[in-house]
């Protein structure tokens, strides 16, 4: 179980990105974080594996304090938390294979890895991970040659190499078109259902939230303004939605029936 307690983050320039955020995530959950651009979603996800240092509060994972872990411990924690990004964040000049293999870095002997010398089993596992996302053909292409959707699948394969218990996904589909969004989230859903990996994902499209979330957290100006289950959000009213997305936001997603068939056509805020 992952527990956030009174988490706050104030950036050096004084921006309060998170204010007293508390919630918990059960293993196997598909938690979706929603909120306007700038509401603190990325900050929250990055605090989870301490790519950003929280200012106060704590995050504990099955009793281990992530916020106070020293750096070797932090690395062993990080290697069990996969992360995928809006802009994929692949190393573009490396091959797809090497990108996937880089997911193993947290487990490897430094010197061997510096020379890009990976174990045979790692290579086999990397191939298997690529197989799961349907990219075996592309294994030895350069990452930059792939399309956006393919790059995000490489991102998922890289996360898989970490044998993660948690996957953090920061707006994983915001740079992709709606059809691809379903493909990518479909992969995440399979990892969640079949492998029991906990997924914490920030999303923009309400239909996607309604379709995939088992639990939802709404952020606004760094505060938690909404908590609900997937069921709740499927029954969400305009008033509640405005509470999260601000007064001038309009409800864009269709009802649950439409959400299952048609991808969203509009977003409450432009993708960053």
């Amino acid at each position: 179980m992952l527990e956030f307690k009174n988490l706050s983050k104030t950036y050096d320039d004084g921006t309060q990105a998170l204010k007293d955020v508390s919630f918990s995530v059960e293993p196997g959950e598909f938690l979706v974080v929603i909120g306007l651009s700038g509401s603190g979603k990325s900050t929250l996800l990055r605090c989870t594996n301490r790519l950003i240092e929280p200012t106060s509060g704590s995050i504990t994972w099955d009793g281990t304090d992530i916020t106070n872990a020293d750096s070797p411990t932090l690395r062993t924690i990080r290697r069990r938390i996969g992360m995928i990004f809006q802009h994929f964040n692949l190393v573009k000049r490396l091959s797809v294979m090497n990108n996937v293999l880089s997911g193993r870095l947290g487990y490897l002997d430094t010197w061997k890895s510096l020379l890009y010398r990976f174990e045979k089993t790692d290579r086999e596992n990397a191939m298997r991970a690529l197989q799961r996302v349907g990219l075996t053909e592309q294994a030895y292409k350069r990452a930059s040659e792939l399309s956006g959707g393919q790059q995000q699948r490489v991102g998922i394969a890289r996360a898989l190499m970490q044998e993660p218990q948690i996957i953090l996904a920061d707006e994983p589909v915001a740079s992709l078109d709606p059809v691809l969004a379903h493909t990518i989230l479909g992969y995440l859903e399979r990892l969640n259902k079949e492998d029991g990996i906990t997924v914490i994902c920030s999303l923009h499209y309400l239909d996607l939230v309604q379709r995939y979330a088992t639990k939802v957290i709404g952020l606004r100006d760094g505060r938690v303004v909404y908590r609900g289950t997937g069921e709740d959000i499927r029954r969400m009213t305009d008033a509640e939605f405005k509470e999260i997305y601000g007064e001038d936001a309009e409800r864009v997603g269709a009802g649950p029936a439409a959400a299952a068939t048609a991808p969203a056509v509009n977003t409450p805020e432009e993708a960053e």
Partner: peptide, 23 residues
């Protein structure tokens, strides 16, 4: 971005430079 991604895998500083910066 890629540097952040490599760090997130649990890579140490040297590995991050070798995989995230140098390429």
């Amino acid at each position: 971005g890629p540097i952040e991604a490599i760090q997130a895998t649990g890579a140490n500083r040297l590995q991050t430079i070798m995989f995230g910066v140098i390429p």
